[in-house]
């Protein structure tokens, strides 16, 4: 079995430790004895829709997004749409999340046309507006699993009827700071403002993406559970630092300090 990952724009959209997500997917597969192949697709590199089953796209500043947007829609767009339609997993964070929508309207300059893979659009409310910055804790819609992370975005994202949010922000703002919803999902395409290393502290999402990616090539498979002690301890500590109380992860007692050590 092989997990085939395609890392899009690894040297362009890689703000805030985004590559930690690819590291996490790869390591967790290796711990389970699953081989891993990571292809990097940079500007001008074409994408083969059948060669990879999990696509990752990170965040960037306005300048980098402006460089990536035409390439994403033009060079890589048709292949990515085809792969996603066929069930490939996609994870897009922050700037990459915005580019998966229909468009991003920045504070200055023309609109950036997005891939339209997720039914959403993003508007920056203007140069004087408050940036949404801080720890965030999200409760998943349905199963109620928790995501912890950090958000840092100027743009406000609004979902259309064909995308559903990942969950609701218990702490922090999420998509637009108004409806407390965070992220967007369509098929196995996930977009979120939880930027940077989202997957290390949220291994359930890493495994969900991995399972979806493997399903495309190998049918339904059950991933062997991993101990995840350090993962759960870090998630607990992060939730406490964010100010969320009473959340419990298996094996991780609340041992994190609330004051400087």
């Amino acid at each position: 079995m092989e997990l085939r990952i395609c890392h899009l724009y690894p040297d362009l959209l890689n703000l805030y430790g985004d590559r930690g997500n690819v590291t996490t997917l790869a390591r967790r597969a290796q711990w389970r004895g699953i081989a891993v192949r990571v292809i990097e697709a940079r500007l001008d590199d074409p994408v083969d829709p059948d060669a990879s089953d999990l696509f990752f796209i990170g965040g960037g500043e306005d300048r980098q997004q402006r460089l990536a947007a035409p390439d994403l829609c033009g060079v890589k767009g048709p292949a990515l749409r085809e792969a996603a339609q066929a069930g490939a997993a996609v994870l897009a964070v922050c700037g990459g999340y915005q580019l998966l929508g229909h468009y991003y309207r920045p504070a200055g300059g023309p609109d950036l046309i997005g891939l339209g893979l997720l039914d959403l659009h993003t508007v920056h409310p203007g140069p004087g507006s408050r940036r949404i910055i801080g720890n965030i804790v999200v409760k998943e819609t349905g199963a109620g699993r928790i995501l912890v992370g950090f958000e840092n975005h100027g743009g406000r994202t609004y979902l259309g009827p064909k995308a559903r949010p990942i969950g609701t922000a218990i702490v922090g703002s999420g998509n637009n700071g108004a409806d407390r919803k965070e992220g967007a999902v369509w098929k196995s395409v996930y977009g979120t403002y939880l930027h940077g290393p989202l997957l290390p502290k949220n291994p359930w999402l890493a495994d969900e993406l991995t399972a979806a990616a493997l399903r495309r090539r190998y049918g339904d498979i059950v991933l062997e559970p991993l101990p995840d002690l350090e993962e759960h301890r870090a998630a607990t500590a992060a939730a406490i630092r964010a100010g969320a109380r009473g959340l419990a992860w298996p094996g991780a007692r609340a041992q994190a300090p609330e004051r400087p050590a």
Binding site: E230, R233, A234, A238, Q255, P260, A261
Partner: peptide, 25 residues
């Protein structure tokens, strides 16, 4: 430090075995 657990997790994924890493708040 306040984010000792995050650091320990980073070291795990960097390939350091658990017995080489200890957390002291």
């Amino acid at each position: 430090g306040l984010r000792a657990e995050d650091m320990a997790l980073r070291l795990k994924y960097a390939g350091l075995s658990a017995e080489r890493v200890s957390v002291e708040h």
